Computed example of a mutant assay.
Amino acid sequence: MTEGTALIVGVGPGLGLALARAFAAEGHQVALFGRDIERLTALSAEVTTPDGTARAYQVDVADADALQAALRSAAHDLGAPSVLVYNAAQLVQDTPTGLDAEQLARTFAVNVTGAVVAARTVLPLLDGGRGTLLFTGGSLAVRPSPLYTSLSLGKAALRAYVQALHEEQQGSEVQVTTVTIDGQIGGGDPRLAPEVVAGAFVDVHRRPRGEWEAELRY
């Protein structure tokens, strides 16, 4: 018996892989989503799930139709999801005066719109209408940087969206939380090692209903 399927959107060799491993260790089937299918397939082979290894799904999260289709395919292939982690982000160095509209639209599509599409797609797919939607936030949401303007705007908008979705889902069996990470993952601080941060996401998923909150400041 498994704990349902965990959908990890935005998987690389750092936090994304650690999240996949952490939820697999909890007994979940795991689906990994990303743009580079060769790298994604190699990473999926490093994740041991109850039924073997994780499944890789190639998708550009900025393409709403493709993202919806990939998430639905994973639910069909692996079973109804119980967890969604939206970990995708586009990191671009840009300044308030140097940021143009097209660039902002491109980054916003990954940093925010993809999260909205993922949440709306997964909510009706959740196993028995119960589950957890988790979003990787960052301190730029509350302390914006003039060197990473579009990411600061994206993380602030993502934080606002998750808080609104959390309120909307009050009374349901769906937990909605952003994990706001204050620091550089893998930057040398042992508290910010990818596997340690991934453990915090798992801990949120395990919370009893009375302890659900819109945000974990980590």
Score class of each variant (00 low, 15 high):
Arg206Met: 06
Gly171Asp: 12
Val59Met: 13
Val85His: 09
Pro96Leu: 02
Ile8Trp: 03
Leu140Arg: 13
Arg159Trp: 10
Asp189Pro: 02
Leu67Lys: 12
Gly187Asn: 13
Tyr218Arg: 07
Tyr86Trp: 08
Val11Met: 04
Gly186Val: 12
Thr180Gln: 14
Gly114Cys: 13
Thr53Asp: 06
Val142Asp: 02
Phe135Arg: 03
Trp212Met: 09
Ala164Cys: 14
Tyr161Thr: 01
Leu158Trp: 11
Gln58Lys: 15
Gly186His: 09
Thr132Val: 15
Phe23Met: 13
Ala18His: 04
Ala214Met: 03
Val174Met: 03
Val61Ala: 06
Val179Glu: 00
Leu133Tyr: 03
Thr113Tyr: 11
Leu19Ala: 04
Tyr218Glu: 09
His166Trp: 13
Leu40Arg: 09
Leu104His: 11
Gly79Leu: 07
Gly154Ile: 02
His76Ser: 15
Gly4Lys: 09
Leu192Pro: 05
Thr2His: 09
Leu134Asn: 04
Leu99Cys: 04
Glu195His: 15
Phe201Asp: 04
Phe23Pro: 12
Arg72Thr: 13
Leu67Ser: 03
Ser172Lys: 05
Val122Lys: 01
Glu195Cys: 04
Thr53Tyr: 06
Gly10Leu: 11
Ala54His: 01
Gly114Val: 10
Leu40Lys: 03
Leu19Ser: 06
Leu19His: 12
Asp63Ala: 07
Gly98Phe: 05
Leu78Lys: 05
Met1Asn: 08
Leu153Ala: 14
Leu67Arg: 11
Ala75Asn: 00
Leu40Met: 06
Gln169Thr: 08
Arg106Val: 15
Asp189Glu: 11
Thr149Met: 06
Leu165Glu: 08
Val112Arg: 00
Leu19Trp: 12
Glu3Asn: 13
Asp189Gly: 05
Trp212Lys: 04
Arg106Cys: 08
